[in-house]
Design a protein around this nucleic acid. Structure first.
Lengths: 136, 136
DNA sequence: TTGTTCTGTAATAATAAAAGTTACAGTATG
DNA sequence: CATACTGTAACTTTTATTATTACAGAACAA
């Protein structure tokens, strides 16, 4: 993941929470986010794959939450949405002839994975319901 | 910050630790990282600004640590290196006419800042010395 | 059963961000 | 004064992200 995926997913989930089971279509959602509907549909496809939303195709179709907001944990959402590591994960290949270069990638990955777990643990303390209640 | 800044900075700091006070020039460092020397110099400029390294200009010049490795905390390095928020911080402007769009940026920033603090707290448990000792 | 309005997905184009490159003034050294 | 660095800026190339277009297939409603 990077920047926007998590933001967009949370925006979508919040909207779906707020309308209480009503189906929202991708164009409406995109209007709230101010982005392209296809981007929303891709994000919805991922949320669907991970069981957070349900979609209905065809006329009058749209998406709705597949779980109760109190059962949607933000740490889980993060993990579902994440595509690459938060830190690092570059295609850079350090010099294998240098003792530091040879091991740095592995060492950094370990460090990053610990740090990211701390972040996920923090996110896991909150549910969509909590997040959504923060809005007026 | 994003992806590489932290990785490059840590790579630099680790190299400087390993050579024990010896001056390393940007070309040598770039050779270990396998990137452009100018990129290294930019990263060094930032590390210098935050007091982690010292540089010497001119012939025979280069950089060295400005503190003992045990006094360089990875959480501090992270904060020094970070340029943008870890999550979010996009230029996207949600629809202000939508109740969710109107407040989402603020709500997300709050969430992200909490999560990032958890990550920093985790990184702060480690020093450059600890990190460096992880190498053979 | 046909027109309409959606989803889902792929292919492509436009835009933005990151990294690399070149260039050069200024500084230390011998 | 020649050499080898740093520090920085300007510019180019590459890569990643976002937007756009397009269309098959699903659901619905007349």
């Amino acid at each position: 993941m990077n920047s926007s995926h998590f933001s967009i997913s949370l925006h979508i989930l919040t909207l779906l929470d707020k309308v209480n089971g009503q189906l929202l279509n991708s164009e409406y959602i995109a209007g709230s986010i101010n982005c392209n509907p296809v981007l929303v549909r891709k994000e919805l496809a991922n949320l669907h794959k991970h069981g957070f939303v349900q979609s209905k195709e065809g006329k009058g179709g749209g998406s709705t939450l597949a779980k109760r907001p109190a059962d949607i944990n933000l740490g889980e959402v993060y993990k579902a949405v994440k595509q690459k590591g938060l830190l690092g994960e570059s295609k850079n290949e350090p010099n294998p002839d240098c003792p530091v270069g040879k091991q740095i990638t592995q060492q950094l990955n370990k460090l990053y994975s610990d740090a990211e777990n701390a972040l996920i643990k923090d996110l896991s303390l909150k549910t969509l319901k909590d997040f959504s209640l923060g809005f007026d």
